[in-house]
């Protein structure tokens, strides 16, 4: 009896603890997401939003018009490809910058690691818009950077180029904003490496270059993939950076989504764009994770 009562109590405790957050997220996360998926199959309303679910004849008005529009009009494919390219370039540049930093932190004495890591994270905690604004100042036409660049260009007889409101500005800021996401998982991985492996390789005559490409890099691939996922997903959906730093041609998929919901008010099409964005981001990251597992197994063989 006592055991029975206790088991009953345990089941109740389980519901008491997990029930409220579960309920909250079902109502305010799962339901809105499902409603948006449904909205992507509905017709746009005459004055924005959604048309009634049942048309004049009482039939359900569900269609794939918005999907057809996305996949047939090339202008959307262009924006989507541009977003993918920007996110990919951002991920690669972040990787190139984060790797030496993560490696240095992992090789530092234990005591200074925490502070070095904190220094990477801190800028990430300053407001997102402030970090964009900082680049508006740095790349602005009056700033030292623009004057220096244009001064150099002037010597070669090239006309002044604006740094702000360009793809360059968008990419620089994308890298700046996402860099910490790459450093953290890379560091977590590099820190675990056994230095004996590198010593052994060196004793066997491997050069620094060989030691990096044959040992350190393959072993770090899980960290590389984790960092790439953390950078790629948010970078793909960004709209504030192209909005504030980009030129007229720098419309990305995030800007299109914002436009559909706040200006054109075409919700079905906006929903389609959001779904395509999310599905492709998760699919690409899933693919990377899958590749990563293979790489990890390979790396373990190298390590063993």
């Amino acid at each position: 009896m006592a055991a029975d009562a206790r088991r009953h109590e345990a089941a109740r405790a389980r519901w008491l603890v997990s029930g409220p957050p579960l309920l909250y997220l079902l109502v305010f996360f799962a339901a809105p997401t499902l409603i948006m998926v449904l909205a992507s199959f509905r017709s746009p309303g005459e004055f924005g939003g959604l048309a009634p679910l049942r048309d004049d004849t009482g039939a359900l008005d569900l269609n794939v018009d918005a999907y057809v529009r996305f996949f047939t009009e090339t202008v959307y494919a262009q924006v989507f490809v541009k977003s993918l390219v920007f996110a990919l370039v951002t991920t690669l540049v972040c990787l190139a910058l984060a790797y030496p930093l993560a490696a240095l932190i992992a090789r530092s004495p234990k005591k200074s690691r925490d502070i070095l890591l904190l220094l990477v994270i801190l800028p990430f905690w300053s407001n997102f818009l402030i970090r964009i604004y900082a680049w508006m100042i740095l790349l602005g036409p009056n700033a030292a950077l623009a004057r220096a660049v244009n001064g150099v260009l002037g010597w070669f007889g090239a006309g002044p180029v604006p740094l702000l409101f360009s793809s360059f500005a968008v990419l620089v800021c994308l890298v700046y904003v996402h860099l910490p996401f790459m450093v953290l998982p890379l560091y977590a991985n590099l820190e675990k490496h056994d230095p004996a492996l590198l010593d052994a390789a060196q004793d066997l005559g491997a050069s620094a270059w060989q030691r990096f490409w044959r040992i350190t890099f393959p072993l770090s691939l899980p960290g590389v993939y984790a960092g790439a996922a953390l950078v790629f997903i948010p970078a793909l959906g960004i709209f504030a950076i192209p909005d504030l730093l980009g030129g007229p041609d720098d419309t990305l998929i995030g800007n299109l989504i914002k436009q559909q919901f706040l200006e054109t008010r075409d919700w079905p099409f906006g929903s389609v764009l959001s779904i395509v964005l999310t599905v492709s981001a998760l699919a690409l990251v899933g693919l990377a994770a899958w590749l990563g597992r293979g790489a990890t197994r390979g790396a373990e063989r190298v390590g063993a």
């Binding site: 957050p21 579960l22 305010f28 339901a31 997903i233 959906g237 959001s274 999310t278």
Partner: peptide, 23 residues
């Protein structure tokens, strides 16, 4: 629960914003 707890962190922020707007 794990799915619902971690999904909002893993998906693009903009998706959550627009789906809540519709909601």
């Amino acid at each position: 629960l794990p799915l619902l707890v971690f999904a909002p962190i893993a998906i693009p922020e903009i998706l959550m914003g627009v789906s809540l707007l519709i909601f």
